[in-house]
Computed example of a mutant assay.
Amino acid sequence: MLENIGWGEILLLVVAGLFILGPERLPSAAAWLGRTVRQVREYATGARQQLRDELGPDFDQIRKPLEDLRELRNFDPKRAVTRHLFDGDTDYRDTDYRDPGLPTNNGFQGYPPAARPPQQPLQPGERPPFDPDAT
């Protein structure tokens, strides 16, 4: 939850704390916050260790599906398909796997590239083309 907080947000919180608490109480409030966060982390670590001690080897069997669920939260379907199809090969976009000298299975060589007229920038005061059917 707190991993997405950057330095800008921290600076904003410090400035807001200066205005709300004042410069006299801000150091003691920061110390209290630090102690509280440290204590909560110690409680979480202690609870995890106690659970691990009580469950023994079953703890890893419970933890594995939870880690799999955590990975699903960051699931990117495009990356998964790319990894599956190309076995992690990232230069597949730059490679044309067809030999241009060979015809395809049906003998079709492909369409020649379409010749487009070069686009000219609009002149000052000229209105861009408008298609009412496209809007």
Rank of each mutant, 00 (worst) to 15 (best):
G17C: 05
K78F: 14
Y92T: 06
L2R: 06
V81T: 09
R73E: 06
R116F: 11
P77N: 01
Q61T: 13
A31F: 01
Y92G: 01
L21R: 09
Q61V: 12
P57D: 02
L72Q: 12
R93S: 03
A114M: 10
L26R: 07
R38F: 01
L21S: 10
R63K: 13
E71Y: 10
P118I: 09
I10Q: 04
D99C: 06
T95D: 01
L33P: 00
A31E: 05
K64Y: 09
D96E: 09
N4C: 02
P77K: 06
F75I: 12
E71S: 15
A80H: 06
P100K: 05
L55D: 00
R70D: 04
A47L: 15
D87T: 05
E54Q: 15
G125D: 03
A31K: 08
P132R: 05
Q109H: 08
E24I: 14
G34K: 12
Y97I: 14
R63Y: 05
R79E: 12
L18M: 13
K64L: 13
D133R: 15
V14K: 09
T82W: 11
G88R: 13
P113H: 02
D76V: 08
P117K: 14
L18V: 08
D76W: 02
Q109Y: 04
D53F: 08
G125Y: 09
L11C: 08
L33K: 01
L66G: 03
R41Q: 08
D89K: 13
Y43L: 08
G101I: 03
Q49P: 00
L85M: 10
R38H: 02
Q109W: 10
Q39P: 00
I20Q: 06
E67G: 02
R35A: 01
D87N: 10
V14Q: 01
G56T: 12
R83N: 13
D91W: 04
E67M: 15
F59I: 07
L122V: 07
Q39W: 06
P100V: 06
A31I: 08
H84R: 14
N74D: 15
D60P: 03
Q123Y: 02
R93E: 09
